Simulated scan of single mutants.
Amino acid sequence: MNVIVVGGGKVGYYLAETLLEHGHKPFVIETDKEICRKIANNLDIPVINGDGTTLGALESAGVEHCDAFVSVTGQDQVNLIACQLAKKRYGVERTVARVNNPKNLKVMKRLGVDIPVSSTDSIARLIEREIDVATIKRLLSINRGEATISEVEIPKNYSRNGTSLMDFNLPNECVIVSITRGDSLIIPRGNTQIFSGDKLIVICRNEYLHQLLHALRIE
């Protein structure tokens, strides 16, 4: 998924690096030229030297087409304004703001930020979970939340319609238990094909759920 990250400091750098490792496409907006150069050179991702609270910088980063918008600067006011612009002007579905002062958590939420986060280490996981929720319906947690039984619905106009399971590079930590197609229940084998509208019941360790979606090409 495409994720715009406002703020390229330690938190922004870590977040961009983590998203990149997980197969996402981060785009960073940062005011400091040296930090921009460092991120571009080390991570080889698009970086804009600009202010994330300005329309010009946001549009240059492709805010109209991003799946999630995250502002993680050291200033709560900047993070709030950036998220409000992304949400209200460009219709971004998921906005995440780093909250440096925990007292501002409720204010951020009340003023339109979807996910205000004070624990920076959990931001990457939160983004993936919120984006995936539209595709994955979690049915049951297993082993104290270590894994999940979930339903994954294959979208309409599926790009890999008719592809056999053996041709997907599925994570080893995920198992497709059954496929519901209309009124039929299918116990899948390697040559079982996947079609638009199918509903897959999967058992998967939570940290591999997004990799499963990536492998199925339904991010």
Results as ranks from 00 to 15, higher is better:
residue 4 I to Y: 13
residue 6 V to F: 15
residue 8 G to A: 05
residue 12 G to Q: 06
residue 17 E to Q: 11
residue 17 E to P: 00
residue 20 L to D: 02
residue 20 L to C: 05
residue 22 H to L: 13
residue 23 G to S: 08
residue 26 P to T: 02
residue 26 P to Y: 01
residue 28 V to Y: 03
residue 29 I to T: 01
residue 29 I to R: 01
residue 29 I to N: 01
residue 29 I to F: 02
residue 30 E to V: 00
residue 31 T to A: 11
residue 32 D to N: 15
residue 33 K to E: 05
residue 34 E to V: 07
residue 34 E to R: 06
residue 35 I to T: 10
residue 35 I to K: 06
residue 37 R to I: 01
residue 43 L to I: 08
residue 46 P to L: 03
residue 48 I to L: 09
residue 49 N to L: 03
residue 50 G to H: 02
residue 50 G to E: 05
residue 51 D to I: 03
residue 52 G to D: 05
residue 53 T to H: 03
residue 53 T to I: 11
residue 56 G to F: 06
residue 57 A to G: 02
residue 61 A to M: 01
residue 62 G to L: 02
residue 62 G to M: 01
residue 65 H to S: 13
residue 66 C to Q: 07
residue 70 V to D: 02
residue 70 V to I: 07
residue 73 T to C: 08
residue 73 T to W: 11
residue 74 G to P: 10
residue 74 G to Q: 12
residue 75 Q to V: 08
residue 77 Q to A: 12
residue 77 Q to D: 14
residue 78 V to E: 05
residue 80 L to P: 04
residue 80 L to T: 02
residue 81 I to F: 12
residue 84 Q to N: 11
residue 85 L to P: 06
residue 86 A to E: 01
residue 86 A to S: 06
residue 87 K to Q: 12
residue 88 K to S: 14
residue 88 K to T: 12
residue 88 K to V: 07
residue 90 Y to N: 03
residue 91 G to L: 08
residue 91 G to A: 04
residue 92 V to R: 02
residue 93 E to R: 10
residue 93 E to C: 10
residue 95 T to R: 02
residue 95 T to W: 02
residue 96 V to K: 04
residue 102 P to M: 03
residue 102 P to I: 05
residue 104 N to E: 13
residue 105 L to A: 03
residue 106 K to I: 11
residue 107 V to Q: 08
residue 107 V to G: 04
residue 108 M to E: 11
residue 109 K to I: 11
residue 109 K to W: 13
residue 109 K to F: 14
residue 112 G to R: 00
residue 112 G to Y: 03
residue 116 P to K: 02
residue 117 V to C: 15
residue 119 S to M: 12
residue 121 D to G: 13
residue 122 S to W: 10
residue 125 R to Y: 13
residue 127 I to K: 05
residue 128 E to P: 14
residue 128 E to L: 15
residue 129 R to Y: 10
residue 133 V to W: 09
residue 133 V to E: 15
residue 134 A to T: 15
residue 135 T to E: 13
residue 140 L to I: 13
residue 141 S to W: 14
residue 143 N to A: 05
residue 144 R to W: 07
residue 145 G to N: 00
residue 146 E to R: 12
residue 149 I to R: 06
residue 150 S to M: 09
residue 150 S to F: 03
residue 152 V to R: 00
residue 153 E to S: 15
residue 162 G to T: 12
residue 164 S to E: 14
residue 166 M to N: 12
residue 167 D to H: 13
residue 168 F to N: 03
residue 170 L to M: 03
residue 174 C to N: 09
residue 178 S to L: 10
residue 183 D to S: 14
residue 185 L to S: 14
residue 188 P to D: 06
residue 189 R to C: 13
residue 193 Q to W: 00
residue 195 F to T: 09
residue 196 S to G: 15
residue 197 G to D: 06
residue 198 D to R: 06
residue 201 I to C: 09
residue 207 E to G: 06
residue 210 H to F: 14
residue 211 Q to T: 11
residue 211 Q to H: 12
residue 212 L to A: 05
residue 214 H to M: 07
residue 215 A to Q: 08
residue 215 A to T: 11
residue 218 I to T: 07
residue 219 E to I: 14
residue 219 E to Q: 15
